[in-house]
Design a protein around this nucleic acid. Structure first.
Lengths: 243, 243
DNA sequence: CGTGAGATTGACTATATTCAACCCTAGTGG
DNA sequence: CCACTAGGGTTGAATATAGTCAATCTCACG
């Protein structure tokens, strides 16, 4: 995936305009934001912030996926969140974070200087409201993940991960079958699911031999049986909202 | 649901005044809140909200502990949060929750009618700000728990749980040794830690034979060796902030 | 065409779960 | 006041699931 340093995109033409932190802004507010925004791009694997770094900017993900990672002293790592396009990076009123942020894939961010952004937020209730919604959405997602980490089997975890990608990432189609493009390698998936990379690999192989998925390449998965995937994820009840 | 209505406490004399959702309010704002508040009490085990219930009120925990629980169809349960005194129950702008809320111990809440509360929030930036802080704190806690659920051993999970209680719950002292009063039974602890009740029991027994704790009764634990507990929790680096 | 990182697969092991027996104690009723 | 009971808790033995260690495979890239 070749990364082109993007030229400035007008907010009005921005692909994430309707879902990002600015989604509730009117034209005037958007103009204010436009003044202080800038784009940054990263290669897959690049660090964006280290734990305890001061956050100099906040940002919306425009393109690509970023991961939030916690690490214990002995190296055990747990990914505590993925940021997809339109997701927000940074926390109002907090200069520090206590996890590392890294570009999982090639990544483009729409960045705002933190202090300028916070000054603007104080005058734009639309953004403050939206930030609150975002925080609550993240909280819901974190709790959903607690359920997965604490109580689901390796198979359920793996299927849930694919199911989330089906919902959240930009898909292509192979005929009528959705193609998932994995934003993480096996080890990173394992860190997100609280498993080892070998176990992840085994579960994917199992899904393949069961005819639920088909592997186009290491990073491309065709979902042959969406229903089968959902039922393997242990989410039959609520996961059906695939919209 | 046995409901004991305690007498009204003046906000100024309220034990959680300085940490709760109202902590940033001035006297006038407090007077507004005082008008719409009411107390509710629950017995240990009582349900407070069911998943998908409409939340008719939001509340601060004044006394006791409440738990937030997610359940899969087959009965597997994961506790996704505990609310201690001063913690806030309910989410601005959302009428539904997707977990059950239950009184873990006998519990007293300071409740506000949700709609009236939301109307007040719109006029009181102090409360809106505080709600944002609370949401971000919960998010941090949820992510910390993801690390625990995904990567810690049964021993580390159990020790981490005791360590959290050491920080968050109201302690008594036995000489110089802190006494933890467990707000949950073994099964509930297991649901919080992503373990079985037997495993929790074994880990507690191990901590006992290792001389780290001493069990006064099923629900009372004397911490004989705080350092030992912290190092068993796998939090040596950051857990040291015991204030 | 060779190389190496990432991925898969296999064999073995460890950790936590399951199933079951037993213990403890707070609360009940005789 | 004491004996009994039931629910919660502990402990043990057997089992299952995921982890570990190691060999092999694959494919993108030089």
């Amino acid at each position: 995936m070749n990364l082109i340093l993007p030229e400035r995109v007008k907010c009005n033409e921005c692909p994430i305009r309707h879902r990002a932190v600015c989604s509730k802004c009117d034209d005037q507010e958007l103009a204010e934001l436009e003044k202080i925004k800038s784009y940054r791009s990263y290669k897959a694997g690049d660090p964006i912030f280290w734990r305890y770094d001061e956050m100099t900017f906040v940002a919306s993900v425009v393109y690509g996926v970023a991961s939030l990672n916690k690490t214990l002293e002995d190296g055990r790592t747990q990914t505590v969140g993925l940021l997809f396009p339109s997701d927000f990076m940074g926390r109002p009123g907090r200069q520090q974070i206590d996890f590392d942020v890294k570009a999982a894939t090639d990544l483009t961010l729409c960045c705002f200087d933190r202090k300028k952004f916070e000054a603007i937020v104080d005058e734009m209730p639309h953004i403050a409201q939206r930030l609150m919604e975002i925080a609550l959405d993240e909280l819901d997602a974190a709790r959903e993940w607690m359920m997965l980490l604490g109580r689901k089997t390796a198979m359920e975890k793996t299927a849930s991960f694919l199911e989330i990608l089906l919902r959240r990432s930009t898909l292509t189609l192979n005929g009528s079958e959705p193609v998932i493009s994995l934003p993480l390698n096996r080890e990173e998936i394992a860190n997100y699911l609280g498993l080892t990379l070998e176990t992840v690999s085994r579960q994917l192989s199992k899904l393949k031999t069961d005819g639920v998925i088909q592997m186009e390449s290491r990073r491309e998965i065709v979902v042959k049986d969406v229903g089968g995937l959902i039922s393997a994820s242990g989410n039959d009840a609520d996961g059906a909202i695939l919209s």
